[in-house]
């Protein structure tokens, strides 16, 4: 099987870290480069954390490009919820109970990000690639890709597809209505959804089926490699954080590894067991639903073009087996 060429776009981030490890260790995937973005933590930290993960995996050769610190427009209104939270600044969140600590539990690294900005590198790399050669896998706010699409429309037909972690419909998300990645930069996600590129949205509804429990974390730890240890540590950390938050996402049994499912779905699309080919748009209205992914359901009265493969469910067993297999290779 020919390797799938992907560009990761991450806000590392505990589940981002496992997603990066799985992607760079998976034999079916070639990671062309990694762009970072502000989201779970500030972009300075998402970049440093990303480099630490690469060192942990022995893949310091993969280039990392620092991306946008701020969303396109969601923080421009000083009274808006996003402006109160973003940009993240180091030291603001209690680290003990954080889902995403400022610094991953890994030693500091000598690796550095490349000098080019993520947006310029994305544009260059896509323009120089063959048509439909590279798949984009953003698992944080999609700011970098949206900026690149606006800056140079010629990249749009180059993209093979976008498999992203984001959105929610039936799952109780952070702001009642919106999943975090979309909420951070609603306008950026809408730019992607209007771009015409094939988009698979690995939503919170699907990633709720990508939960790992302590037993599974212990099985992974028993593999004994650094990336396996990191994965086990981060699953424990996420379980602890879910408990601190009233077990909102853990459903009492495990920690959801949202971003990792998106990587898995690139090489094993069948892990997504229920997919709606539907119209999907983001609410940009600055009200309670700002950043909600709105799925088109009533085609009889308001027919909208189908622009999104919205994943609602995943095969938990297949997901764990894949992740375990990749870490054991």
């Amino acid at each position: 099987m020919e390797k799938r060429k992907i560009i990761l776009d991450v806000d590392t981030g505990s589940d981002d870290a496992i997603a990066i490890a799985a992607a760079v260790l998976c034999e079916d995937i070639e990671v062309v480069g990694i762009c970072t973005v502000g989201g779970n933590v500030e972009v300075k930290n998402t970049t440093d954390n990303t480099l630490r993960v690469l060192e942990c995996c022995g893949r310091g050769d993969i280039p990392v490009y620092r991306g946008a610190a701020l969303p396109l427009a969601s923080t421009l209104q000083p009274w808006g919820l996003q402006a109160a939270v973003l940009p993240r600044t180091e030291g603001k969140i209690a680290q003990e109970k954080a889902v995403h600590p400022d610094h991953l539990p890994l030693p500091p690294t000598q690796l550095t990000a490349r000098p080019q900005s993520a947006v310029v590198w994305l544009i260059n790399t896509l323009l120089e690639s063959e048509d439909k050669e590279i798949t984009l896998v953003p698992v944080g706010p999609v700011t970098n890709i949206a900026l690149a699409m606006r800056a140079d429309e010629r990249i749009i037909p180059k993209i093979k597809e976008i498999v992203l972690m984001g959105g929610s419909h039936d799952t109780y998300p952070p702001t009642q209505a919106s999943e975090f990645n979309v909420w951070c930069d609603p306008e950026a996600m809408e730019i992607l959804l209007q771009s015409g590129v094939k988009i698979t949205m690995v939503s919170l509804d699907a990633t709720g089926h990508a939960c790992l429990d302590r037993n599974q974390a212990d099985m992974i730890r028993a593999i004994g490699t650094s990336p396996a240890n990191l994965t086990a540590d981060l699953i424990y950390q996420r379980l602890k954080a879910s408990a601190a938050e009233g077990d909102r996402e853990g459903k009492g049994v495990g920690a959801a590894l949202h971003d990792v499912l998106a990587v898995c779905a690139v090489v094993h699309p069948q892990v997504l067991t229920e997919i709606d080919h539907t119209s999907c748009h983001v609410d940009l209205g600055h009200g309670y639903a700002y950043g909600e992914t709105v799925l088109g359901r009533n085609y009889k009265f308001s027919p909208m073009p189908k622009n999104c493969y919205y994943a609602k469910k995943a095969d938990s067993r297949m997901f764990f087996d894949w992740l375990y297999g990749v870490l054991k290779e």
Partner: peptide, 12 residues
Amino acid sequence: LTNLAIALRAKP
């Protein structure tokens, strides 16, 4: 001011 704003977001 689109070009400049996007450049500033990409690399402040």
